[in-house]
Simulated assay, not measured.
Amino acid sequence: MADLSGAHWRKSTRSGGNGGECVEVADNLPGIVAVRDSKDPTGPALTFIPAAWATFTGQVGRTR
């Protein structure tokens, strides 16, 4: 399990502005990108290697 204690979380630019669909991303940690639900900051977080996260966000951007 990754140590996320030093994570600097920011709201995703793709999150909704009405407080509903809020995803936070931390990409300041070496070798991982962490993603969590901003409504549950003490809950679970998903972690990805940076290349996988870049592929995912690239594909999501093409579907909009």
Rank of each mutant, 00 (worst) to 15 (best):
V25K: 02
I49Y: 10
E21H: 13
V23K: 00
I49D: 15
G6E: 15
G61C: 07
A7M: 00
G19C: 11
V25R: 03
R64Y: 14
F48K: 04
G58E: 10
D27N: 03
K11H: 09
E24Y: 00
N18I: 05
E24L: 01
D3T: 01
E24W: 00
S12W: 04
V25I: 15
A54H: 11
G61N: 13
A7L: 05
T13L: 12
W53F: 04
D37Q: 01
L29N: 07
R62W: 12
G6D: 15
P30D: 14
A54G: 11
N28C: 07
I32A: 08
N18C: 01
R62S: 15
A7Y: 02
V33K: 00
W53N: 02
E21F: 10
N18M: 03
A7S: 11
D27R: 08
S15F: 04
F56V: 08
S5M: 09
V35S: 07
N28H: 02
R14I: 06
L29D: 07
L29W: 04
P30A: 07
D37F: 06
S5A: 14
S5Y: 10
A51N: 11
L4H: 01
R36I: 01
R14L: 07
T55N: 12
T63L: 14
K11F: 03
D3F: 10
D3K: 03
L46Q: 12
N18Y: 06
R10G: 06
G20I: 09
T57V: 14
N28E: 08
R14S: 04
K11R: 15
G16N: 13
L29V: 06
A51T: 15
A51G: 11
E24D: 06
A34L: 01
S38C: 02
R36N: 04
T55H: 10
P41C: 02
L4M: 06
A45N: 08
T63H: 11
T47M: 07
H8Q: 15
I49M: 08
R36W: 00
C22Y: 07
W53K: 00
E21V: 09
T13I: 12
G58A: 05
G58P: 06
C22G: 03
P50Q: 03
P50I: 00
T13H: 12
A34P: 05
R64S: 14
G43Q: 11
V33A: 05
L46K: 07
C22W: 03
P50W: 08
L29H: 06
S12R: 00
K11T: 15
P50R: 03
V33R: 02
G61K: 13
L46G: 12
R10L: 01
I49C: 10
T47E: 14
L4F: 05
F48M: 06
T63D: 09
A7K: 01
A52Y: 09
L29K: 07
A52C: 09
T42I: 11
A2G: 08
V33I: 13
N28G: 13
D40I: 07
T47G: 04
A7N: 01
Q59K: 11
H8G: 15
F56I: 09
A26M: 02
V60Y: 05
S12Q: 04
K39Q: 09
K11M: 11
L4R: 00
I32K: 05
F48H: 02
F56K: 05
A2P: 15
G20P: 01
G17P: 03
R36F: 05
A51I: 12
P30C: 06
S12T: 02
A26T: 02
R62N: 14
L46F: 03
A54C: 09
D3N: 13
A26Q: 01
